[in-house]
């Protein structure tokens, strides 16, 4: 992956990276209000904690984890699915076999996969990262990423069949995992 960005103060990072973080949260949560709250909450927290230097990769992971924490709560899931604006998902360039990973599938998978697998899932199928990029961002080996993706594919295959119609899945995917 490309060189890491220079660390910035939280307010500077908010100005520079806030829009990118908001777009990322919107891809995952598929609604503007909750995505805005996640990003605002993250930076308010950084300011409150007096964190003075943050960089893009840290923010990227933090937004992923905060979005997944929201999704993990069953009561939030219902609200998120109600508010879902599918267009915010953006172009689905990477699919898990035949399945586009959207909010509905993400919600179902959150009950079947642990935090580390869910993070890799978001990196691969919502952030469209290569295995090398995921390994670097998550500070793990490419082999571990590959194993997690395999596990994810198994879970998606189990769960995906029942939501295939809702998620708009279909053949013709590119950028497979192997």
């Amino acid at each position: 992956m490309e060189a890491a960005s220079e660390p910035l103060s939280a307010p500077d990072a908010y100005r520079k990276y806030g829009p990118a973080m908001r777009r990322k949260a919107e891809r995952i949560l598929q609604n503007r209000e909750d995505a805005g709250d996640v990003v605002q909450g993250l930076f308010v927290d950084l300011v409150e904690r007096g964190v003075e230097r943050v960089e893009l990769a840290y923010l990227y992971r933090a937004v992923t984890n905060r979005c997944l924490n929201l999704i993990r709560d069953r009561r939030n899931r219902d609200r998120l699915l109600e508010r879902q604006q599918a267009a915010l998902r953006g172009p689905a360039r990477v699919r898990c076999d035949d399945h586009v990973i959207g909010l509905d599938l993400l919600c179902r998978l959150s009950g079947a996969l642990d935090e580390k697998h869910m993070e890799v899932l978001v990196c691969r199928y919502l952030d469209d990262m290569s295995q090398d990029e995921i390994a670097e961002l998550c500070r793990t080996s490419r082999k571990t990423v590959g194993k997690r993706l395999q596990r994810i594919r198994e879970r998606v295959a189990e769960i995906g069949a029942s939501v295939e119609g809702e998620s708009g899945g279909g053949a013709g995917s590119q950028g497979g995992d192997r």
Binding site: M1, L56, R89, A92, D128, M129, L137
Partner: peptide
């Protein structure tokens, strides 16, 4: 969410940003 076909390994959203 629209599906799109990439010609190879997609440029990740992070790299695009």
């Amino acid at each position: 969410m629209s599906g799109s076909t990439c010609t190879g390994q997609p440029v990740s959203w992070l790299a695009l940003e």
